[in-house]
Design a protein around this nucleic acid. Sequence first.
DNA 1: CGGTAATCTAGAACAAGTTTCAGAACTGAA
DNA 2: TTCAGTTCTGAAACTTGTTCTAGATTACCG
Lengths: 233, 233
Amino acid sequence: MGHMTTESKAAGPALPASPPLTERQEARRRRILHTSAKLASRGGFDAVQMREVAESSGVALGTLYRYFPSKVHLLVATMQDQLQHMHETLRKRPPSEEDPGARVAQTLMRAFRALQREPHLADAMVRALTFADRSVSPEVDTVSRLTTAIILDAMAPPVAHPPSKGPARPAVPPTPEQLSAVRVIEHTWHSALITWLSGRASIAQVKIDIETVCRLIDLTAPGRTQDRHPPSA
Amino acid sequence: MGHMTTESKAAGPALPASPPLTERQEARRRRILHTSAKLASRGGFDAVQMREVAESSGVALGTLYRYFPSKVHLLVATMQDQLQHMHETLRKRPPSEEDPGARVAQTLMRAFRALQREPHLADAMVRALTFADRSVSPEVDTVSRLTTAIILDAMAPPVAHPPSKGPARPAVPPTPEQLSAVRVIEHTWHSALITWLSGRASIAQVKIDIETVCRLIDLTAPGRTQDRHPPSA
DNA sequence: CGGTAATCTAGAACAAGTTTCAGAACTGAA
DNA sequence: TTCAGTTCTGAAACTTGTTCTAGATTACCG
């Protein structure tokens, strides 16, 4: 289970950079991801069966495995896809709060509410994410970067004039302490999602946890004195 | 994958309360858990193969499934077992720091160093824990309670006189804010472990994350004014 | 001791992820 | 257009978690 002999020398289409996909290949990839999300929306992780994904996408099983070398790869890629949509959606309606911590909490709660609308899909994606082993590290890392971007976007204070184009937030680079806080927030976000998905925590509990951890942001805001034990205890 | 028709009406031996296990049954259970930990120590999650666990424990496959209704159940039970050892070990050498946050960070770093000695075993247990679905909720909850107990133990200030017996820490009940902080610390603990196990974070990074989140404890210490956004934003 | 119900064993059988392979279809270059 | 190399297809095979069944063992009760 989980090897990889074929890949890695031929540089399969999974990497979005190496070989430029032809139009038909791009279409196949989209179809597969769409099917994956559709099946996941039904029954979660277990409902995404590779044979069914292949058949329903009009692709041979071997081809599916050429595009996504495992079920976990497929679901993590699906998550990348969904996260990008989410990022754009969230970017359109920036949080209304003032404090960075509150802004992040508000944004994450919006994302959480979006996930609640498709709990099975959320289940499939998050389970795949945390179940991924080393062979999926690059893809999981991409997801992590996307999540970080969402949080950093929310943290940045609202700008007065509408920016024209390009990636925002080159203005105030976050401090190392803030980056640590963001990492911890991501940890909490993922783990809280898991406890909610497995029915061990209520929605209210997730909200509390997110708001609790977001205090770290204000705590580490630049200009605030670090009164207690420094980074290396 | 993942049903459960047999169990739940007959109250299998998995529950430590319902039917008092006979001596031979207790021995079988121990043998199974031991084998599970041994195999996990080798190759992690994938190396724990149910047939091999059964054979190496000297029980039939069906019996293994009667004791542990799935591989995830087995590994979560293994984690319970290991955590109990860990708890006792940690209890013997309480942290030396003064601040509650620093005490918790120190304790978790000790636990982390213990896990580093058996990274494959840690991998198997943590992956099982986060992959567990609703059917494993009770067992996962037990693990969560154990973890909470370890953190609360560490948080409690050192006592002057040696307590004689019984569960400690009835002295100062933690505040709701502290309990929230503990929840967030657990989230961070699990998620940071995962990123380390999958090779996406270094040991140093885990240390930083733990120390960062443990500041929440001091932040929510009783007697400290809550200056920013209250629980319901 | 005999009987009955629960438990255990051995092994087949099934399900879904993954691999493999021979041949068809496609792509790009000469 | 034709050729060579890659990609895709269809189907079987393999792996490992899980379930099922028939018979042997064991535990308990009178």
